[in-house]
């Protein structure tokens, strides 16, 4: 049987020595998961670099620029700001968990969820614009620009929907995780001694934010000045 001290924290699992070791193990495990997430997104970044450079088909270089001119930079910028703000509220949530301020933690988690929902709504508005303009890849893709750029533009929108779709999928998962964290926070599960679920959920949220930090210039800001 374990030699568990009578005064051990109730959240301490039997296979850990103490709360610090449990915290260190939990965060390290999350980092290992995030490393696999980097590999999960990497092929899309590779494909983007390969096609945008025009190495395989020189027309793709101009095709990507022309296609990106159909992007709504204002909505993309708004989403970038919303997502970075949500990363701030997540970071503040960890701070309030560490300092035993339960109400402030709950407020931060709610704000995070609202930011996440706002991001998805704005993304939906953008997707709708693309659908209406027949920019969704496939049979009904219609390019009304220069015909020689159609293939590159089509490839841009294939990558756009794959990358933002995978990212939005992560956002939806993240909202689910934070609903769970919010429920536990309202039950007063977290304290300065035990906040590792808030910490690791935050790591996931920040990772998804970082992916968007890269996607924003790649998908919205390809030579916007050349738009006529």
């Amino acid at each position: 049987m374990s030699e568990r001290a009578a005064n051990a924290h109730p959240a301490l699992r039997s296979h850990f020595e103490d709360m610090n070791q449990q915290h260190a193990t939990g965060t390290l495990g999350m980092w290992f998961f995030l490393v696999t997430e980097i590999l999960f997104f990497a092929p899309l970044f590779f494909t983007y670099a390969l096609f945008r450079s025009g190495s395989l088909d020189p027309s793709f270089h101009a095709g990507f620029i022309a296609a990106s001119h159909h992007q709504n930079i204002k909505l993309g910028l708004t989403n970038t700001i919303v997502l970075i703000a949500s990363s701030l509220t997540v970071a503040l949530g960890v701070y309030f968990a560490q300092t035993n301020k339960r109400k402030a933690l709950v407020v931060m988690l709610v704000l995070t969820l609202l930011c996440g929902a706002a991001f998805l709504v704005i993304k939906g508005i953008e997707y709708n614009e693309h659908f209406v303009h027949h920019l969704f890849p496939g049979q009904n893709f219609h390019w009304d620009g220069a015909p020689e750029l159609a293939r590159g533009a089509h490839m841009f929108y294939i990558l756009y929907f794959c990358m933002t779709g995978l990212h939005a999928f992560h956002m939806i998962i993240g909202i689910g995780i934070f609903l769970y964290i919010l429920r536990r926070a309202t039950r007063n599960d977290f304290s300065s001694e035990y906040y590792v679920p808030v910490e690791v959920s935050g790591l996931y949220w920040h990772f998804v934010d970082i992916v968007w930090i890269f996607l924003f210039p790649m998908l919205y800001l390809i030579d916007p000045a050349s738009k006529h």
Partner: peptide
Amino acid sequence: KATVVVLFFMH
């Protein structure tokens, strides 16, 4: 930006 997030927000 990613480095700043990793170092400070992700501790």
